[in-house]
């Protein structure tokens, strides 16, 4: 805990240095950041929107990690989930009470399909899921661009996006005049559900065994190939669901630029949350602050918002050291 705080302080110091380099006053910068993120009900709502968008892929990453799989592909799965949701949502002509679940499930299904492609490569052919998910990220972006601009272009839509979804298909908001929707409680519910699955169910037990000691798990009758496939599919489904909630709750349409890299930042969030679904909620909120405050920081303190991406990258490197060193200390030969 103290080390985590130390890492946070070090990162803040580096961010401050970057602000000075950019010719800004770091105190003003941080103040703008926090004011932008937490300065009023609207700002807090927007921070929670970012939290939600991060939470889905973060849980996806953590879920796969726990099963011993590196899902570097949450970004692609999120895009495909959003794409499917956008394409279906813009064309669906049914009442909202039906449309919303259909769109969300379709998005999750799209993400699952994308994730399970890597799962099949791993389960059936033993292909490295890291490389597979990296490649699938880029293929997802290209596919989305092609479909939205090309054959499935919506009439009336400008640029690389679909037409707007009918208002009846928008996710209900929690706070009037904000983009904060029921996606947040859904994400939190998902986190609690995952915690239950890991701690209480036989499925979760087998999943963790496959991740923590694959050879022992195999000899205990756990089918590693099937576990890898199921884990990647479910991980993809969570990321895809996240993409679908961005489409139905935030943008109300699919846009190829719907993710500023949520799927990658999710890796940092999952690591900060120590792969524990409940702590990941807190971590997602912390990163949500960075995401939503960075624009205000750019506008008012003249600090380029990219400093946030930079710091997030640093956080991943620093926190990976912390987690994996601890891990190895536990398992190294006596």
């Amino acid at each position: 805990m103290i080390r985590a705080l130390g890492v946070a302080l070090a990162l803040a110091a580096i961010a401050a240095l970057a602000m000075i380099v950019a010719g800004a006053n770091p105190i003003v910068g941080f103040f703008a950041l926090f004011r932008g993120a937490l300065g009023g009900p609207n700002q807090i709502a927007e921070t929670l929107v970012q939290t939600t968008s991060l939470l889905f892929p973060s849980l996806a990453v953590a879920f796969a990690f726990r099963a011993g799989l590196f899902n570097i592909g949450a970004e692609g799965q999120l895009i495909i989930g959003g794409l499917v949701a956008g394409l279906i949502g813009a064309r669906l002509n049914v009442p909202g009470a039906l449309a919303i679940p259909v769109i969300l499930v379709a998005g999750a299904f799209g993400g699952a399909l994308w994730g399970s492609t890597a799962g099949v490569l791993r389960a059936r052919f033993g292909g490295n899921e890291v490389i597979a998910t990296l490649m699938l990220n880029i293929v997802a972006a290209l596919l989305a661009n092609y479909l939205v601009v090309g054959p499935l272009h919506s009439p009336g839509a400008t640029g690389a996006e679909t037409a707007q979804l009918p208002e009846s298909s928008w996710l209900p908001t929690l706070l009037a005049d904000t983009r904060l929707t029921i996606a947040l409680p859904i994400a939190i519910l998902l986190a609690f559900a995952l915690r239950f699955v890991f701690d209480r169910t036989i499925f979760g037990y087998e999943l963790r065994a496959a991740g923590d000691a694959p050879e022992a798990a195999r000899r205990a009758g756990i089918n590693l190939a099937r576990t890898a496939f199921v884990a990647m599919a479910l991980s993809g489904a969570m990321a895809g669901l996240g993409g679908a909630t961005i489409v139905t709750g935030v943008l109300h349409r699919f846009n190829v630029a719907l993710s500023p890299g949520y799927g990658f930042i999710a890796i940092a969030v999952a690591l900060v949350g120590d792969l524990d679904p409940l702590r990941i909620i807190v971590a997602a909120f912390a990163f949500g602050i960075l995401q939503s405050g960075s624009l205000t920081m750019q506008a008012y303190a003249h600090v380029p918002k990219d400093v946030v991406t930079f710091v997030e990258g640093l956080a991943i490197v620093a926190l990976a050291a912390r987690r994996f060193v601890a891990e190895r200390a536990k398992t190294s030969p006596a």
Partner: peptide, 11 residues
């Protein structure tokens, strides 16, 4: 190999 094939060490 009990450490690898029989046990999940962190558990």
């Amino acid at each position: 190999d009990r450490r690898r094939e029989a046990l999940v060490l962190p558990w």
